[in-house]
Design a protein around this nucleic acid. Structure first.
Length: 149
DNA sequence: GCCAACGTTGGC
DNA sequence: GCCAACGTTGGC
């Protein structure tokens, strides 16, 4: 059992959308490190911190879990879509995604609050210049965060 | 809208 | 295989 933090822009897809949908394909990831986390390390049942980014109040907005192991991201094959990848074929897909299932909406834990806990100082999300949309979370960090929500 | 940081691309 | 240029991310 592992833990993850996954970023999403609430204007595109926020915790309320996930609450409505129940679960969703985490398509559109076009970064190899993030892809590898999904493809190689995520297992059904892994815990997910649902993080709102690029918005007025960035922070953790809810809890989710991995609902389906990684499979080829369908959007890479759509020539009209913005996630199209001309070098990907169904026989040799380049991008993968898991499905994520809603667990609960929580209060918003703002980035500034996360930054304030010494226990969370090692989180990737706090590293300068961090741009990874999916990052592993230590079990201790997970426990600390969940206890404050 | 600014800008720092980073990943990717492509010329050589 | 180097590395400069470019595009994107994301907090502020």
């Amino acid at each position: 059992m592992r833990y993850w933090l996954m970023k999403s822009e609430p204007a595109e897809y926020g915790i309320d959308d996930l609450a409505r949908d129940g679960s969703v394909a985490w398509f559109g990831v076009r970064n190899y490190q993030a892809r590898n986390f999904m493809r190689d390390q995520m297992r059904v049942g892994d815990g997910v911190l649902f993080y709102h980014s690029s918005c007025a109040e960035p922070g953790i907005a809810g809890l989710a879990e991995v609902a389906k192991p990684a499979y080829p991201d369908a959007t890479q094959f759509d020539p009209d879509g913005k996630y199209y990848d001309a070098k990907a074929t169904p026989d040799n897909p380049r991008w993968f995604n898991v499905d994520v299932r809603f667990v609960k909406k929580t209060r918003l834990m703002p980035l500034a609050e996360i930054r304030g806990y010494p226990e969370l100082a090692g989180m990737r999300i706090l590293a300068r210049g961090n741009r990874l949309s999916i990052t592993p979370v230590d079990p201790d960090e997970w426990r600390h965060i969940v206890a404050q929500l």
